[in-house]
Amino acid sequence: MTRYILKRLVGMLVVVLIVLTIAFVIVRLAPGDPAALLLGPDATPEDAAELREKLGLNSPILVQYMAFLGNAVRGDLGNSLFFNRPVTEVLLARAEPTTFLALFSLLISLVIAVPIGIYAAYRRGSWLDQSAVSTAMLAASVPSFWTGLMFQRYLATEMGWFPASDYGGPDADFISRMGYLVLPSIVLGIVNSALILRFTRASMLDILGEDFVRTARSKGMSERRVVLRHALKNAAIPIITIIGLTFANLVSGAVVTERVFNLPGMGNLVVNAVLRRDYPVIQGTLIVVAVLYVLINLMVDLVYLLVDKRVRY
C-alpha cells in the first residue's frame, strides 16, 4: 500500500515534468511578441527589446527552460505580465470561487443524479426511468450558458431570489460571496448530473442482474437493503470514477459559467490571460490544472482500494 502510493507519487512527478515542458514549449510557439503586446501600440522597438531582455526572452531556449523548471520547483511560476504580480499569487486569489463552485455543483449533481439513477435502474422501463433518462439527455444537451442566462433572467432578475452575477465587492464576507455561487452551482450541477445519472443507472442495472443480488434477496432482507447495501457498493466504482472526472472538469472547465456569471475564477482568468498573451499566467494555470487532475486520479484510485478488496496494485 505505502509502496504503491510512493510509486504513484513518482509517476506523478514524471507527469508534472512533462506538463511543465509542454507548457514551456507551447507558449514559446505561440505567435506574437509578448513584450510588444505588454507595452502597447505606442512602444518603441527599443523599449520592447529592453523588456524582452528583462524577461529573459533573449537567452538561449535551453537556459530559459532550465530557469523555468528551477523556478517552478520553488513554486515561482513567474510574474504575470498584465498584473505585474507573481502568477502563484494571482492564481491563489482566483482559486476560491472556482473551488467552491466546483464543490457546490458536484454536490448538487450528486444529490440529483445518484438517487434518481439508482431508482431508475431499480424500476427499469417504468415511466420514472424513461423520463429520468430523457430529462438527463435534455439537461446534458442544453449548453450551460443558455441555462445560465435563463436562470439569471427569471430566477435572479425577475424573482430576485439570487444575485444575478459578480462575486460581491472587495469587502463582502465569505457567506455573502458564497451566495453569489448558488445560481452558477445549480446551472453546473444540472449539466453535470446528466452524466453521473447515466453512469449510476447503467452501473446499477449491471449489478442488479448479478447472482449475488438474488442471493441477497433469498436471505430475506428488505429491498432497500438489497439495493443500497449489496448492489450499490458493487456499482460504486464506475460512479466514483465519473465523480472524480467531473470534479476535475469542474475545476478546470467552468470557463463558460464563470464568464456568464462574471465570477473572478480561474476560468475567467485564463480566458483573459490568453487574450492578453499573459504567458506566465497561461502556463501557471495549465500546470495547476494538470497537477490537480493527477491528484484527483490518485485519490480516485485510492478510493477503489477502500471499496473493493479485489483491487490490488
Binding site: E210, D211, F212, R214, T215, A216, H230, K233, N234, V307, D308, K309, R310
Partner: peptide
Amino acid sequence: FQEPMSSLNPL
C-alpha cells in the same frame, strides 16, 4: 445456487 463464483457478494 448454481454458481458459487457469482452468488456471493465480492465486496
